[in-house]
Amino acid sequence: MQNSHSGVNQLGGVFVNGRPLPDSTRQKIVELAHSGARPCDISRILQVSNGCVSKILGRYYETGSIRPRAIGGSKPRVATPEVVSKIAQYKRECPSIFAWEIRDRLLSEGVCTNDNIPSVSSINRVLRNLASEKQQMGADGMYDKLRMLNGQTGSWGTRPGWYPGTSVPGQPTQDGCQQQEGGGENTNSISSNGEDSDEAQMRLQLKRKLQRNRTSFTQEQIEALEKEFERTHYPDVFARERLAAKIDLPEARIQVWFSNRRAKWRREEKLRNQRRQASNTPSHIPISSSFSTSVYQPIPQPTTPVSSFTSGSMLGRTDTALTNTYSALPPMPSFTMANNLPMQPPVPSQTSSYSCMLPTSPSVNGRSYDTYTPPHMQTHMNSQPMGTSGTTSTGLISPGVSVPVQVPGSEPDMSQYWPRLQ
Results as ranks from 00 to 15, higher is better:
Ile87His: 13
Leu146Met: 15
Gly51Cys: 00
Cys52Gly: 06
Pro81Ala: 08
His5Asn: 11
Ser6Arg: 14
Glu109Ala: 12
Val126Phe: 00
Pro22Asp: 04
Tyr61Trp: 07
Ile102Tyr: 05
Gln89Met: 09
Gly18His: 01
Leu149Ser: 15
Lys86Ala: 15
Glu101Ser: 08
His34Glu: 14
Glu82Gly: 08
Pro20Phe: 03
Cys94Tyr: 12
Gln27Cys: 14
Pro22Asn: 01
Thr25Lys: 14
Ser108Tyr: 13
Gln2Leu: 12
Val16Met: 15
Ser65Trp: 03
Arg59Cys: 01
Thr113Glu: 15
Glu133Arg: 15
Gln27Ile: 11
Leu11Met: 07
Lys134Glu: 10
Val126Lys: 06
Glu109Leu: 10
Ser43Pro: 02
Met148Gln: 14
Ser132Arg: 13
Asn17Leu: 15
Ser119Met: 05
Ser74Phe: 02
Gly141Pro: 15
Arg44Ser: 06
Ser35Trp: 10
Gly73Tyr: 02
Gly13Glu: 01
Arg19Val: 06
Trp100Gly: 06
Asp104Val: 09
Ser54Arg: 03
Ile45Lys: 13
Gly72Met: 06
Cys52Phe: 00
Ala37Ser: 08
Ala139Leu: 11
Asp115Lys: 15
Gln47Glu: 04
Leu127Val: 14
Ser132Gln: 11
Glu62Gly: 06
Lys55Val: 07
Ile29Pro: 01
Val8Leu: 07
Val78Arg: 06
Leu32Glu: 03
Tyr60Lys: 08
Ile66Tyr: 14
Asn116Pro: 06
Ala88Ser: 10
Ala99Gln: 05
Asp23Ala: 12
Ala79Ile: 10
Ala37Met: 13
Glu133Met: 13
Gly64Val: 03
Gly51Phe: 00
Ser74Asn: 01
Arg19His: 05
Ser108Leu: 13
Ser54Lys: 02
Arg67Ile: 05
Arg19Gln: 04
Ile42Tyr: 02
Trp100Glu: 03
Pro20Lys: 00
Asp41Asn: 07
Val30Trp: 03
Gln10Leu: 07
Gln89Ile: 14
Pro81Trp: 07
Ser85Met: 10
Ser121Gly: 04
Gln47Pro: 00
Cys40Asn: 05
Pro68Thr: 03
Tyr143Asn: 11
Val14Asn: 09
Lys145Leu: 10
Glu133Ala: 13
Ser35Glu: 14
Pro95Thr: 09
Arg19Cys: 06
Gly7Leu: 10
Arg147Ser: 12
Arg38Asp: 01
Asp140Gln: 12
Asp140Cys: 09
Arg38Phe: 01
Gly73Ala: 03
Pro118Gly: 06
Glu109His: 10
Gln89Ala: 08
Ser108Val: 12
His34Val: 09
Arg38Thr: 03
Arg67Asn: 08
Leu46Thr: 11
Ser119Ala: 04
Ser24Pro: 10
Ser35Pro: 01
Pro118Asn: 00
Ser122Tyr: 00
His5Gly: 13
Tyr61Leu: 07
Gly13Lys: 05
Asp23Pro: 07
Gln27Thr: 10
His34Phe: 10
Tyr60His: 03
Gly110Cys: 12
Glu82Gln: 11
Gly72Leu: 03
Val120Glu: 07
Met142Trp: 13
Asp140Glu: 09
Gly51Asn: 01
Pro95Leu: 09
Val53Gln: 00
Ile71Gln: 15
Ser6Tyr: 15
Arg44Glu: 06
Glu109Val: 08
Ser65Ala: 05
Ser6Phe: 15
Lys28Cys: 08
Gln27Trp: 11
Gly12Asn: 05
Lys75Asp: 01
Asp144Cys: 09
Arg103Ser: 06
Leu106Met: 07
Gly36His: 05
Leu107Asp: 09
Asp104Gly: 10
Asn150Trp: 07
Val111Thr: 09
Gly64Met: 03
Pro20Arg: 01
Cys52Tyr: 00
Arg125Gly: 06
Met148Val: 14
Ala33Arg: 14
Gln2Gly: 13
Lys28Asp: 05
Val83Glu: 01
Ile29Phe: 01
Asp115Gly: 14
Arg59His: 06
Ala131Phe: 12
Val120Ile: 08
Val8Pro: 04
Tyr90Asn: 05
Gln47Leu: 14
Pro118Ser: 03
Trp100Phe: 07
Pro81Leu: 07
Ser85His: 11
Val48Leu: 04
Glu82Asn: 12
Glu101Gly: 08
Gly12Cys: 00
Asp41Arg: 06
Leu130Glu: 11
Asn150Tyr: 04
Arg128Gln: 00
Val30Ala: 07
Pro20Gly: 02
Ile71Arg: 14
Asp104Ile: 12
Trp100His: 09
